[in-house]
């Protein structure tokens, strides 16, 4: 019976995720101010990626939904990364 019911996420889980997201936001601001040169963009984007995984899995319920949704989202992410990678290969080796 229960497994067909929707998983109800407790409120406090959302509060913890929010606190994590806000901390990660300040983390990305911090890493940019460290003046790591070219790596600061990379650092900020790593923070953004962690934040987006939290939003996708908890806020958007992917963690509690059926696996095929996770697979589809992963596939879209993969296609997008491949397009970025190939585009940069083109520009970098021109």
């Amino acid at each position: 019976m229960e497994k067909e019911k929707h998983h109800i996420v407790p409120y406090k889980v959302y509060v913890y995720i929010l606190l994590a997201l806000i901390s990660l936001t300040f983390g990305s601001i911090g890493i940019v101010h460290l003046n790591l040169g070219g790596y600061s963009v990379l650092g900020a984007l790593i923070f953004s990626t962690i934040k987006s995984i939290l939003v996708l899995s908890i806020f958007m319920h992917l963690k509690f939904d059926q696996p095929f949704l996770r697979i589809m989202v992963g596939f879209v992410a993969l296609v997008f990364s491949a397009v970025i990678f190939i585009t940069f290969l083109d520009y970098y080796f021109r």
């Binding site: 984007l45 923070f47 934040k51 987006s52 958007m60």
Partner: peptide, 26 residues
């Protein structure tokens, strides 16, 4: 409501990447 929520999180998700790329350039 669930789909409205998904849409709203999408808007949040996009901003998560817009923010560092536009506002955090040093």
């Amino acid at each position: 409501l669930e789909n409205a929520g998904l849409y709203w999180h999408l808007v949040d998700l996009i901003w998560i990447f817009l923010f560092p790329l536009f506002y955090l350039i040093h």
